[in-house]
């Protein structure tokens, strides 16, 4: 069933377009004047002024790895983040934790963990999929570098950004 939309009947003033035009000019002029009088401030002068303190809790910045209270690296390199990562920014090489290590019972850890920040789209899927609560999106957003190599965050850099995070579920406790 086609819907018939009736064309509105325009008055003469509307037809000659002039009042509407004037109205438009008035609106834009109003905005211009308000900005000129500094009654309204919208733009922030970025590098000098930053919004950092007002970033919301759920803000998604650079992904990073975290260690727990006992300085254990939480990542066990299950590679689920590598799998889920839509732009394929993550590359993990797993290794076995050698005998004698304090956390040998965890058995597995990443030998290398690279996130290519040129590819990362900050979607947060890695954080969502992580079964070990090891990867989190931090509030860092100004990720810059002068070479491609510099933009690949390796394991050390990721732990540097992520730091220690307490109060997470401790799966590898004494009972385990």
């Amino acid at each position: 069933m086609p819907i018939v939309v009736k064309r509105p009947r325009l008055t003469l003033a509307e037809k000659c377009y002039f009042p509407a035009l004037m109205k438009g000019l008035r609106i834009t002029l109003g905005h211009a004047i308000r900005i000129l009088q500094r009654k309204k401030k919208v733009t922030m002068q970025y590098p000098e002024v930053k919004w950092d303190d007002n970033l919301p809790e759920h803000y998604r910045g650079a992904p990073a790895l975290v260690t727990d209270e006992h300085d254990r690296e939480r990542c066990v390199s299950c590679q689920l983040c590598e799998f889920i990562c839509p732009p394929r920014a993550i590359k993990i090489v797993p290794e076995e934790i050698p005998p004698g290590d304090e956390w040998q019972k965890v058995e597995k850890r990443p030998e290398s963990f690279d996130i290519d920040m040129l590819r990362c789209i900050y979607c947060g899927m890695c954080q969502e999929v992580c079964p070990e609560q090891a990867i989190f999106l931090r509030k860092d957003y100004a990720i810059t570098g002068v070479s491609r190599e510099e933009m690949i965050h390796d394991k050390q850099k990721l732990y540097e950004i992520g730091g220690k995070r307490e109060g997470l579920i401790n799966k590898w406790n004494k009972l385990k």
């Binding site: 066990v76 390199s77 299950c78 689920l80 965890v106 058995e107 597995k108 079964p131 070990e132 799966k171 385990k176």
Partner: peptide
């Protein structure tokens, strides 16, 4: 059964 799936090769 342990919750080993993240480190289990069979996963």
């Amino acid at each position: 059964h342990p919750l080993d799936c993240p480190i289990c090769d069979q996963a």
